[in-house]
């Protein structure tokens, strides 16, 4: 009875007694979730178009942030540095297509996945060699102050992160739905061979998706970097994006967003209200267990395509 009360009643009573604080926790969770979504979005884009599970997405975030900070430190203006970083990520996309993807065409997915793990290590060493490994402060002029609204403390930085993530999603949606390249991307995602047969160049498409994923990585890198400094641990958020993907489904852009929000909010609420019962720090694994429990009920994720198997 007391265990039941501790686990179920106690935390709920806490929530009820201080709704403003609960609101703060939820908003904090939503904003953290937005950032997870940004990373997950990069995964989804590449997976949709090429079926490659890009483990290096987290390091691409780190690499983009490192490049941006390095350029700003060397006296470049914020916008110049941004443009240069974007260019670097596009060049990187070309290099990856040429050096990694093209020789591995027609290999099983698992081999490509391993290749991106190798890429992960390579980029990590490369980025740190170019720009140094110490923690850097990233400041692109986003205000980082807190204000009160309806009795809740809200951080401006987190708010603008949410805003930018929302804008990015809208832009991506328009890009996918309305432009010529976006249509080609969707065609490739649907059926490689059919897309090839009507004359869509697969290689160009790959470069485009990896570039777009690189640009998304820049945005994610700016947000995370402004929040907690540019450092190696940035690449670890890639691991946090994995449960997000599982929840949302590997093929779905809206899934990445919704999954990120669920994981972000669930993680924060779990940590604040249930964490103390088991000694805290459950944020590390809570997302995975949540995703795991979810997988048992719906193996293809919230928005994933139903898996139909044939022999």
């Amino acid at each position: 009875m007391s265990v039941f009360q501790q686990v179920l009643i106690g935390p709920l009573k806490d929530i009820g007694s201080n709704p403003a604080f609960f609101g703060e926790v939820v908003i904090g969770g939503i904003l953290a979730g937005m950032l997870y979504s940004l990373v997950a979005l990069g995964f989804v884009l590449i997976f949709k178009a090429s079926g490659v599970f890009n483990f290096a997405q987290g390091v691409m975030v780190l690499f983009a942030a490192l490049t941006l900070v390095g350029l700003i430190e060397r006296g470049a203006g914020v916008w110049v540095a941004l443009a240069a970083t974007a260019l670097v990520m596009i060049v990187l996309a070309f290099a990856i297509e040429r050096a990694v993807l093209r020789p591995l065409v027609n290999q099983p997915q698992i081999i490509l996945f391993m290749a991106t793990i190798g890429l992960n290590f390579f980029l990590e060493g490369f980025g740190e060699m170019l720009w140094g490994a110490n923690v850097k402060k990233l400041d692109v002029g986003i205000p980082d102050r807190s204000f009160m609204a309806a009795g809740m403390q809200i951080n401006q930085l987190e708010l603008s992160a949410g805003g930018i993530a929302a804008i990015l999603v809208v832009v991506l949606a328009i890009f996918f739905q309305k432009t010529r390249i976006g249509r080609a991307l969707r065609a490739v995602a649907d059926d490689h061979e059919a897309a090839l047969s009507i004359g869509i160049p697969l290689k160009t498409i790959w470069v485009v998706v990896w570039s777009v994923a690189g640009l998304v990585a820049i945005v994610a890198g700016i947000m995370w970097g402004a929040k907690s400094g540019v450092q190696f641990s940035l690449s670890l958020i890639a691991l946090k994006a994995l449960p997000v993907l599982i929840l949302g489904g590997f093929e779905s852009v809206p899934g990445a967003i919704v999954g990120g929000l669920i994981i972000g909010v669930g993680e924060k609420i779990g940590e604040v209200y249930w964490g103390p019962l088991v000694g805290g720090a459950i944020e590390n694994w809570f997302a995975y267990v949540l995703a795991l429990a979810f997988l048992l009920i719906r193996p293809q994720g919230l928005f994933g395509e139903k898996i139909i198997e044939r022999v």
């Binding site: 050096a99 990694v100 020789p103 591995l104 290999q107 081999i111 391993m114 290749a115 793990i117 190798g118 890429l119 992960n120 290590f121 390579f122 980029l123 990590e124 060493g125 490369f126 740190e128 060699m129 490994a133």
Partner: peptide, 17 residues
């Protein structure tokens, strides 16, 4: 350490290809 990481990653790619 960084060069080691790069060579490590490079070797994995090399072997897979």
């Amino acid at each position: 350490k960084q060069i080691e990481l790069m060579i490590f990653g490079g070797l994995i790619l090399f072997f897979l290809i």
